[in-house]
Computed example of a mutant assay.
Amino acid sequence: MVDSIGPRPLDRKVGGVTRVGTVSAPPTVTKQPQAVQAPTVAARLSASAPVDIARVEKIKQAIAKGDYPLSPTTIADALVAARYEWMSHDEA
């Protein structure tokens, strides 16, 4: 006689099943007091924006006098470029 092609039924015997008692509650988590850490370089740098106050003041004065060249096209290009840069980091 010829065996059929394809999967053959397996003779698996299942052993007895033992019931587990009630599940105990998970251990409680106690909050540890946080250690006081010295501020890191990143924490100090993120506390304030990296702005050159003196340069900003010079630019403000130049704009007020009319000596600072403002180009709407250049500003628009920079804003569009910043938006595309920002979009490139978004998750899809």
Rank of each mutant, 00 (worst) to 15 (best):
A82W: 01
Q34T: 14
V29M: 01
V56A: 06
I5D: 09
V17G: 00
D90K: 11
A42D: 13
Q32D: 13
P39Q: 09
Q32W: 09
P39R: 07
I75V: 15
V56D: 07
R12D: 12
A62F: 01
E91F: 12
P39S: 05
S46K: 07
G15P: 08
G16H: 01
K60F: 06
I75P: 00
P69F: 01
T18Y: 11
S4H: 06
E85A: 11
R19M: 08
I63C: 02
D3V: 08
E85Y: 07
T30C: 02
I5P: 05
I5K: 00
K58A: 14
T73W: 02
T18D: 12
Q32M: 12
V36T: 13
V14L: 15
A54S: 01
P26R: 06
G16L: 06
R19H: 09
T22L: 09
I53F: 03
L10G: 07
Y84A: 03
L10D: 12
R44N: 10
K65H: 04
A54Q: 04
V41E: 14
A81L: 00
I53L: 10
P9Y: 09
A47Q: 11
E91C: 04
A47C: 01
S4N: 06
A49P: 00
V51T: 11
S4Y: 08
S4C: 03
I63P: 03
M87D: 15
S46T: 11
E85H: 08
S4A: 10
I63L: 10
A38T: 13
V80Y: 01
Q37S: 08
V17S: 10
D3H: 07
A82R: 05
A43V: 11
S71G: 03
V23T: 14
K65A: 14
Y68V: 04
E57V: 06
I5F: 03
E91V: 14
Q34W: 00
I59L: 05
P7A: 07
Q37M: 08
E85I: 02
D52T: 00
S71R: 08
Y68A: 03
